[in-house]
């Protein structure tokens, strides 16, 4: 009974969430149909769909998506992993926290896009520069969230581990990491999300493949339809990444979602 009505509620929520996008789509189409603005600057939805299908059909889209995803993967692995390790050690060692924490917090205040000229000077314009740029984006959410999770493991659990003589790697893998896992997963989500944004930024700055490149090149040729198609694809992939991570999160944190009270301590 309750489950059924909950499902109904969920469906209702989902339908509600569609209303605003549909209205926007209608407004968009009518703006073009009523010739309120130039169809050269605002491509009609149906033309955009045609462009998307054309790009997909020609294989151009696939090549660029794969190029972008590749860069995200490498950059995220470098930045995310180093962020995770640094966050972990800072969370475990108050000394390292005092030592490195302030610098990391301060350096986060620099807008990372402002680093782009410097990165180009240091690392050139090829792949390495893009990896570095994405890695910087991926690093910060990972280091802060991991640190947060590890440093706030309840004293009560640490005490329990002492009573049962959990030490070293066993303590880390059975107590610290599971306890920090919700925070770490939040870090992964933000980190991967930012990687996806940074890859587009890096490709607009200069590249010969990738979705950002596709859009930058199209803008130069005044192919607004391709620019907008790029936006749609970037949004859709970003959304999918987040969705997949949410599914993984629910799997990994089944203990948090297994109660009606939701996440309890």
């Amino acid at each position: 009974m309750i489950k059924n009505s909950l499902k109904k509620l969920e469906l209702k929520d989902k339908l509600l969430a569609l209303i605003v996008p549909l209205l926007l789509l209608a407004a968009w189409q009518s703006a073009v149909s009523l010739e309120l603005c130039s169809p050269l600057l605002l491509i009609p939805p149906l033309t955009l769909l045609d462009t998307l299908l054309y790009l997909a059909d020609s294989g151009e889209l696939t090549i660029n998506i794969i190029a972008s995803l590749n860069r995200v993967l490498v950059g995220f692995l470098i930045g995310g992993l180093s962020g995770f390790l640094l966050g972990l050690f800072m969370g475990l060692s108050p000394f390292l926290d005092r030592f490195a924490g302030p610098l990391i917090k301060a350096s986060k205040q620099v807008p990372q896009f402002a680093l782009m000229p410097l990165i180009i000077l240091w690392f050139g314009v090829d792949e390495l520069a893009k990896y570095v740029f994405i890695a910087i984006g991926a690093f910060y959410p990972m280091v802060f969230n991991t640190y947060q999770g590890v440093s706030t493991v309840s004293k009560r659990y640490r005490e329990l581990a002492r009573v049962f003589d959990y030490r070293g790697a066993r303590f880390l893998t059975k107590v610290i990491l599971p306890s920090a896992m919700p925070s770490i997963i939040t870090g992964v989500r933000h980190s991967l999300g930012l990687s996806w944004m940074f890859v587009v930024g890096a490709e607009i700055f200069g590249a010969d493949t990738g979705l950002g490149y596709m859009m930058a090149a199209a803008r130069n040729m005044f192919q607004i339809d391709i620019v907008m198609a790029g936006l749609v694809v970037i949004g859709a992939i970003g959304f999918s990444i987040n969705f997949i991570l949410q599914v993984i999160e629910k799997r990994l944190l089944v203990w948090r979602f297994s109660s009606d009270q939701g996440a309890s301590k």
Binding site: R156, Y157, L160, V175, P178, S179, M181, L253, W255, R256, S264, K265
Partner: peptide, 11 residues
């Protein structure tokens, strides 16, 4: 202990 202190991530 007074609080059951079960680890929430373990069954």
């Amino acid at each position: 202990f007074q609080d059951h202190r079960l680890l929430p991530w373990l069954t």
